[in-house]
Computed example of a mutant assay.
Amino acid sequence: MSHSLLSYAWREVAACAEVDPELWFPVRGPAPAAVRICRTCPALASCLLDALTEPDQAWGIRAGVDQDTREPLRAAYAAWRTSVESDRATLREAARTAPSASDREALRALATATATEADALATYVIALALSAPAADLDAARDAYRTAKVTRGWAEWDTDSCTTPAYATSATTDRARLHLLTIAHETAQATAPDPAVPSSLAGAA
């Protein structure tokens, strides 16, 4: 699983850094005080990404999202990332065994573009799940769309290879659509305002 987006410097500026951590681990019921603190935190996105990628972060409130609400998103994210890494491994092996330098270069470029697209989608999914401000959500979606187009051109460049390659498998495509759906459902479940506008159109 890729952790290229994850840095732990965010913990130094997190709003919870100097608050009793027990607040984020309620014995039962909701934790509105913890959620309110999370909503003001400058490290909200990094906190949720950490919760989705680190297996020891499954419990408690993270980024204002309780563990029961977060679990479907964590599972969808893990399944998608696993599939993406499998696709990249296939591309790297194809590059290793390619018969010509031009084929190897094209396949390596496609593997890199696939990783860049995956990181851009992860950023967009986090923004969507957290009901980020419209400007931030639009920026994340646009960055993902750009990365997706770049990956498409890299894929097109492999058409001249002895064995043309595809950046994503059908399994990854299904996992991506499921992840976007779950992210939207998470936003609906956690947004302070129940009316969460859909930003899925054109992103998948």
Rank of each mutant, 00 (worst) to 15 (best):
E185G: 04
S46G: 15
Y166A: 08
A101C: 02
V149P: 02
R36P: 02
V149L: 15
A147V: 06
V13E: 07
R28M: 04
W59I: 08
T123W: 06
I37R: 02
S131N: 14
L121S: 07
L5M: 11
P21G: 12
T163G: 01
L91W: 02
A165Q: 04
A139K: 05
P99Q: 05
P26H: 08
E93A: 14
L130M: 12
A201S: 10
T186M: 13
Q57M: 13
A127R: 12
A14G: 13
R104I: 06
P99Y: 00
Q188G: 12
A14I: 06
T172G: 07
A118C: 12
E155C: 09
S2V: 03
A45F: 11
A147P: 07
W156D: 10
E12H: 07
Q57R: 15
F25L: 15
L52H: 08
A115Q: 05
V19T: 07
P30E: 12
A106P: 03
P30S: 08
W10G: 04
A201Q: 07
G60R: 03
S198T: 05
P32T: 06
R92E: 15
D103H: 15
D66I: 04
A129W: 12
R88N: 00
D193C: 07
Q188L: 15
A14D: 06
P26V: 10
Y8K: 05
D159F: 03
T181D: 13
R70A: 12
Q67S: 13
A201E: 07
V149C: 09
T168I: 11
A120F: 05
